[in-house]
Amino acid sequence: MEPQQPQPPASPASASTAVVEPTRAQLRRQASSIAAALVPFGLAFGVLCAEAGLSWLEALGYSSLVFTGSAQFAAVGVLADGGTAVAAIGAGLLLNLRCIAFGVAMAPALRGRLPWRLAVSQLMIDESMAVGSGPTDPALRRYGYLAGGLAVFVLWNASTVVGAVALGGAGDLVTTLGIDATIPAAFLALLWPRLSSQRQRRAALGGVLVALAVAPFVPPGAPILLAALGVVAAGRRGAPAEAHDGADAAGGTGGDGR
């Protein structure tokens, strides 16, 4: 799940000689505000699970063991639509391929003994990467990563259970209050910061067109998988107009609206 923190203030400052690092208190504030922003999304995921016939324990399992919002939505959404297990798993894993890139970005700040690296890897999500990539000092990056990851983990799981238990039985209430509309809106909010880059925009449009074109002919979930072909529409990297793309990369993640 990746509604993100605005790129922390250290980045612009790094352009000058004096680098202003965020304080630990600032990193904690970023972590808690981003985690709070995800609560409606966690509630919506719990509701989706209940509507798809999952128990609250299964819902909690997704939020704690998978712990990547968009993949959780994709997988359970495919199941709710009557899709196969293979389609659900494939859609979720494709969405999570980006975690490899996060891991590569954060690895230098997460050095340590193997058990420690194994443990902190579960927190490798958009938000922990976003908070942790603000500072330049490895110790602060590690602090931001852990603060972001842990804050999101706690609130994400708590809101999932509340959504599954308290709101899940109320299917009519969900549609009456428009809570079901929070899911596409959340995906849109996650996508939005990427659209400032032309190549990301082209890739997104390509994915949309592929998904809609194949939707009537393939099983649920498969349109999402096939939409990966949309990256072809982005074209080669390094066209002259793409000088600013590097900033967008950090920020596929950037800007929760701001």
């Binding site: 968009s70 391929l97 980006r98 659209l195 997104a204 999402i224 939409a227 990256v231 596929g252």
Partner: peptide, 12 residues
């Protein structure tokens, strides 16, 4: 880096 954009767009 590019992959999430088409996937999220398709989800929307």
């Amino acid at each position: 880096d590019l992959l999430p954009a088409p996937l999220l767009g398709a989800l929307v």
